[in-house]
Nucleic acid binder design. Structure first.
Length: 435
RNA sequence: GGAGAGGUGGCUGAGUGGUCGAAAGCGGCAGAUUGCUAAUCUGUUGUACGGUUCGUAAGUCCGUACCGAGGGUUCGAAUCCCUCCCUCUCCGCCA
């Protein structure tokens, strides 16, 4: 949610910064806000008089006046008249407020001061690269879906029978690898100071609205028909909402959480893209990092968050680069965002594997996440940040492609080996299984 | 799913139509005091919105709203009525 006060104080500047992201008209909100405040003043004055009357009637009755005393009847009459007036003003004010709310919820966050200017993803800025030396150099590398199917560890065909297209079933070593990645990532993050949570995988409308998925992007998520519940599109939603409508104390901050959840996305409007493989599925696993911090620290917390996500790629020796998204490519709720992109040998390109955003007070305002500093009056909105650490399916895809061997086998990254049991215990590679 | 009970301030818990934003206790904060890792006493202590005076600001003052949520009755509702949500207990079912 945008900060209405900030908008009111300097609409010009507000509008300029908002328009770095696209076309947005703030005039309607401004006008409605003005109207609403005037109405509120009138209404609350009437209300005050009405309260006075209520008290006066009470006082008279206490001191022995009869209910049909002329004075009391007069007061009652005035009260009734006021009530009628209020009955007209109240719905007006309510609908103004609702309109303002609707418009405000539709406005994206303002880009941070440091976000590079740009119209779209072509103007994102590469910050750094890591792991060039790990980029495989051999010819004829298979895309992960071919490799995975050949190894018998990914099954797309049967999955679309069970569900639809854009679903996968992981089999044998594929499932084991996925599971080991989840455990490995979580262990690393816990070591780095994050507290693991396993939140609900279904979330309500209020939660989806607080983090910014709703109301604008309803068609992106799966909704349960009979309940006010949505399949979580990212752990960001349940984890951030853990503290919705709470006032924490400043000493509680920062709070760091990591969470594994499956994620569900309709991927409406992306039908042509990434139709094969693990890159774009309706259901995928993700380990997420979420931070709740004091506003004064959020910039450095953001940098640290990116590093915590990148550390996973480095431990797995997967080559990656860091992009900073420009103003035109920023997600709806983000003020600043870094993407981590992993090297995909088959396409000879980097693909997004983590998105690390600083939302500043945007989600906190929508979800009413506040904190109080002892000694200080009032409350403040805290800052929220989150990042994938990492998208597990895409990590598996990158791993298969980057670790594939000329003989069709796939090496198992060393850091993962302790996590593999059963038939893979002590193994250094996944070999093709004869059919 | 069936039956019952209940949702009050950071917590415990009073309050069944008027002076209740709400007793009391605990906790928190400030001060006083005692020669001591603490006790005692005094004061203070919710949030949001709007207005206002002085102010660079913090703040001051006034009004309104909030006792699970939304509606209703009434001059007046934490208190009465309706709907919904949630929690607890018992039964049923179930991983």
């Amino acid at each position: 949610m945008i900060d209405l006060k900030q908008l009111r104080e300097d609409p010009q500047r507000f509008s300029e910064r908002l328009n770095l992201r696209g076309e947005y008209d703030i005039q309607p909100i401004l006008a409605l806000d003005q109207q609403q405040r005037e109405l509120e003043e009138t209404r609350s004055q009437l209300q005050a008089r009405s309260n006075q009357i209520g008290k006066a009637v009470g006082d008279r009755m206490k001191s022995g006046a009869k209910p049909n005393d002329p004075e009391i009847l007069a007061l009652k009459a005035e009260g009734s008249a006021l009530k009628e007036q209020l009955g007209e003003l109240e719905p007006q004010e309510r609908s103004l407020k609702a309109e303002i709310e609707t418009l405000s919820l539709g406005l994206p966050n303002l880009p941070s001061e440091t976000t590079p200017l740009g119209k779209n993803e072509t103007e994102n800025v590469e910050i750094r690269r890591w792991g060039d030396e790990y980029i495989p150099r051999q010819e004829g590398l298979l895309p992960h879906w071919e490799l995975g199917e050949a190894l018998g560890i990914l099954n797309f065909e049967r999955s679309s029978k069970v569900a639809q297209s854009r679903f996968v079933t992981l089999v044998g070593a594929g499932a084991a690898l996925e599971r080991s990645l989840i455990s490995f990532m979580l262990d690393r993050h816990i070591q780095a100071g994050y507290t693991e949570v396993i939140p609900p995988f279904l979330v309500n409308t209020a939660s989806m609205t607080a983090t910014g998925q709703l109301p604008k992007f309803a068609e992106e998520s799966f909704q349960c028909a009979q309940d006010d519940l949505w399949l979580t599109p990212t752990a960001e939603v349940p984890v951030t909402n853990l503290y919705r409508d709470e006032i924490l104390s400043a000493e509680d901050l920062p709070i760091y959480h990591c969470a594994y959840t499956p994620c569900f996305r309709r991927e409406a409007g992306s039908y042509g893209r990434d139709t094969r493989g693990l890159i774009r599925l309706h259901q995928f696993n993700k380990v997420e990092l979420v931070k709740f911090v004091h506003p004064s620290t959020s910039a450095q917390e953001h940098e640290a968050l990116v590093q915590d996500a990148a550390a996973i790629l480095e431990a797995l020796k997967l080559p990656y680069r860091v992009l900073e998204l420009c103003t035109g490519d920023l997600g709806f709720s983000a003020a600043k965002c870094y993407d981590l992109e992993v090297w995909m040998p088959s396409a000879e390109t980097y693909r997004e594997i983590s998105s690390c955003s600083n939302f500043q007070g945007f989600q906190a305002r929508r979800g009413n996440l506040r904190f109080k500093e002892t000694g200080k009056k009032g409350t403040q909105f805290l800052h929220t940040l989150n990042g994938s650490g990492l998208a597990v399916g895409r990590t598996l895809a990158a791993l298969l492609e980057n670790y594939q061997q000329p003989d069709g086998s796939v090496q198992i990254p060393e850091v993962l080996r302790p996590y593999l049991g059963g038939q893979l215990a002590g193994q250094s590679a996944i070999a093709p299984t004869p059919k």
